[in-house]
């Protein structure tokens, strides 16, 4: 009886060892697969050359530094207003835009004075930020 019980214990122990071994093996196979994938990716990337005209396109693409616009953004005071409520003055409208809708503001800032006024007039009839954003982009393209 003791003999059978001993064999059962040994089989159980061996089974645990096999399970552990398989777990370690699958983990290392997975890591190896990942490492191989990354190696292949690096190989493909090193073969990559950007098409000449695509590169030229980048150089010819106008880009403007907007650091000047963002300077002093943190000093701005929109009077603590965080939403574009109807009825703000143009100056206040710009400050709220600057404080809360920085992306829209950066585009707004580049508009000429008459276009800024056009956006402001639009805001007076519709203070929804999403619509104002669309208006800024639309006016900027005209």
């Amino acid at each position: 009886m003791y003999f059978i019980w001993n064999i059962q214990r040994k089989i159980k122990a061996m089974l645990w060892i096999v399970v552990l071994f398989l777990l370690l093996l699958s983990n290392s196979v997975y890591s190896q697969e990942n490492a191989d994938y990354l190696k292949l990716l690096e190989g493909e990337a090193s073969d990559l050359n950007l098409d000449d005209q695509t590169k030229d396109g980048q150089k010819k693409t106008p880009s403007r530094d907007i650091k000047l616009f963002s300077q002093g953004l943190n000093d701005s005071k929109g009077g603590g207003i965080t939403e574009l409520f109807p009825g703000l003055s143009q100056q206040h409208f710009e400050l709220v835009l600057k404080d809360n809708y920085i992306g829209s503001y950066l585009f707004y800032k580049r508009l000429s004075q008459p276009k800024k006024e056009e956006v402001y007039r639009y805001y007076q009839s519709n203070s929804d930020p999403a619509m104002i954003r669309k208006k800024i982009i639309q006016v900027g393209k005209n």
């Binding site: 693409t61 907007i66 580049r110």
Partner: peptide
């Protein structure tokens, strides 16, 4: 920086490279 995204204007352009 403000980047303008547009398409290459050369209508004879063909992709080369990677």
């Amino acid at each position: 920086k403000l980047i303008k995204i547009q398409r290459i204007q050369d209508q004879d352009h063909r992709l080369e490279g990677g």
